[in-house]
Computed example of a mutant assay.
Amino acid sequence: MTAYLVLKDHPLKRGQDGPGIKVDAKAESDGQLFSEGESTLDTVKEGDVLTERDALAALMIPSANNIARLLARWDAGSEKAFVEKMNKTADELGMKNTHYTDPSGLTASTVSTAEDLVKLGEKLVEFPALMDITKLPEWKDPSGKKWRNYNTLVPFDGALGIKTGSTTKAGGNLLFAAHRMVDGTDQLIVGAVLGQHKNPIIDTVNAASKQVMTATLDLLEGAKIVKKGDVVGTVDNGMGGSSQVVATKDVKAVGWAGLTVKLELTDDGKTIPHGAVAGTHVGTLTVGEGASQVKVAVALKDDLPEPTTGDKLTRLG
């Protein structure tokens, strides 16, 4: 969530480093908490400047809690204000069983569920610059020190990350994403495995996640759910005239048996004309969600008649 909010407030394009973030005294002192079992970036000193990209890499790969707190202060002015933003955003994303009490997720009072984390993961995969970081097997910090990615799913099987997390109480946890080309479309899956307590817990959660990830990818297949010419809706001219709307191409959805596919019909933000001939493009049918969705134009099946004078008078009345 910390990465999500930072990227929403400070967008980062692929290949860019982003703005500089000055390391404060607290980030340096917090970096020494590795001696108490915290994951930190212990190579930073007060006055150093981290690029946004390096700060995100420190956050996502070595799980640097001191950098999470630094990013919170940089973004919102204080850790308290940032945590308020985290909880507000969780509500907006429908993460009903999630509550944040710190920017790093380390405190035991910060809680979530696998289902909620998948909702967040579906948003994170929409940041290519972040996925370029999380799919790295290792990262070299500005001092030259190398940090391994404890998500051992990357860079195999189309895995993109996203984030490990572990404590003795919480066990091993992994929010993961992967992609595969199916029927010419780049399909993304997001999953979460939590509470793996068999030692070593990181190895256990990686193994469980790999099993889920590869099995899901192997199940993906395309199926035609709408044929060219199928009626997918109706439009009216607001004055009594109407016409059915049809798909202009075959539409395939990718998924697995039993999956419910979301369909959405929109007018592309344009006003439907009062009159138009058959075949006029009047909107878009969207199949699926997120980065894997498929879009196809929809058009009038028959002519949409111009309103008569009587229709207009009735409308005015």
Rank of each mutant, 00 (worst) to 15 (best):
T214F: 00
T214G: 03
T214S: 09
T214V: 15
A215F: 08
T216S: 13
T216N: 10
T216W: 13
T216Q: 15
L217K: 09
L217Q: 06
L217H: 11
L217E: 03
L217Y: 06
D218W: 08
L219S: 12
L220N: 02
E221Q: 12
G222N: 05
G222Q: 09
A223F: 12
I225E: 04
I225C: 04
I225D: 05
V226T: 10
K227H: 15
K227Q: 12
G229H: 03
G229I: 03
V231S: 05
V232Y: 01
V232R: 01
G233K: 00
G233V: 00
V235A: 03
D236K: 07
D236N: 10
N237E: 01
N237W: 01
G238C: 04
G238M: 10
G240A: 06
G240M: 12
G240T: 08
G240W: 05
G240L: 11
G241F: 04
G241P: 04
G241V: 05
S242K: 15
S242Q: 12
S242M: 04
S243V: 10
S243Q: 07
S243A: 13
V245P: 10
T248S: 13
K249G: 01
D250Y: 05
D250C: 02
A253N: 07
G255K: 10
A257G: 11
A257M: 15
L259F: 04
T260K: 15
T260S: 14
V261S: 09
V261N: 06
K262I: 05
L263F: 15
E264Y: 08
L265I: 07
T266L: 04
T266R: 07
T266N: 14
D268S: 15
K270C: 02
T271C: 07
T271F: 00
P273G: 10
P273I: 13
H274G: 12
H274I: 12
H274A: 08
G275L: 03
G275K: 11
A276I: 03
A276W: 09
V277H: 09
V277Q: 14
V277E: 14
V277R: 13
